[in-house]
Structure formats: C-alpha cells, structure tokens
Amino acid sequence: METEKKFEPRIVAMLCNWCSYAGADLAGVSRLQYPPNIRVIRVMCSGTVSPHHIVHAFQRGADGVLIAGCHIGDCHYIRGNYMTIKRAKFMEGLLNFAGYSPERLRLEWISAAEGVKFAEVVREFTEKIRTLGPAPSFEASPRLATAVL
C-alpha cells in the first residue's frame, strides 16, 4: 500500500548565544512543546550571521531560515543586532526579487526569559512553512533554461 509521504519542513534556526539560545533552553527545561522541525545553530551574535549563510542554507535545501537575537537595546555587543535587522530587511527584498518567497526568512527577537515566545515562534513558523510547501529548488538547471527562454 502506498502512502504519500507527508511534507516535513526543514528549518535552520540561527540563535544568538546570549538571548535566543538561552530562550530555547528555557523552553526546553520548562517542557514546552514545539515542533521538532528546527535545526539549531548557535552563533555568538545574530549580527554575525552573514547573508552568505542564509543563501547557502536555502541553496542546500532548507525550507525556512529563522534568525533570532536579543531585543534591540539588549544586545550583548551593544548594537550587534542593528546590523542583523538591516541585513534581514535587505535580504527579504533580494530574495523576493530572485523569485524566492521572502516569508521563508524570519527574524525574531527572543530574550532569555521568553521560552514561551520561542516555542510560539517555532510553532507559528513551522506552520507557515508547512502551508508554503517545500522550497523550490535553488539549483540552476539547463531544463529551466529551455522552459523559460
């Protein structure tokens, strides 16, 4: 009997060491339930997430990328997250222009005390990606050239 394989989103989450990662930790120790679809990468500051990494994640087949850092004003490095928001805004526009849904990239501020918010964001984002479906291929392919040009 054939059963259709259910689509499970793959989400790369880049969490800042000082706030969001601790927030995720709190969600864990508080035994809050959230979908297991995220793969967490701990970074020292959300401002260290280079746009390269975001594009690279999509290239390698991520369905969504979540970046979470400290609230504005709470950054451990004073103003590191100013850069994050500037880049994220720019990336959104660029992904959109490249034909990629900008909704697949999400930026959230999650403090170390916001375990509930963390679980909520992951739940919401996973559902969002589930409705968007699997990410389109990012691979340049000769087939597409004949189909479009």
Binding site: F97, A98, G99, A140, S141, L144, A145, V148
Partner: peptide, 16 residues
C-alpha cells in the same frame, strides 16, 4: 512577473 516565474527566469539565466 509572478514570483515563481521570476525564480525560473533567474535560474535559467544563472544556468549559463
């Protein structure tokens, strides 16, 4: 262009 077409358009060009 619609988003999907735009992606195809770009990937078709990047392919070369």
């Amino acid at each position: 262009m619609a988003g999907e077409d735009r992606l195809k358009w770009w990937l078709g060009h990047f392919n070369r």
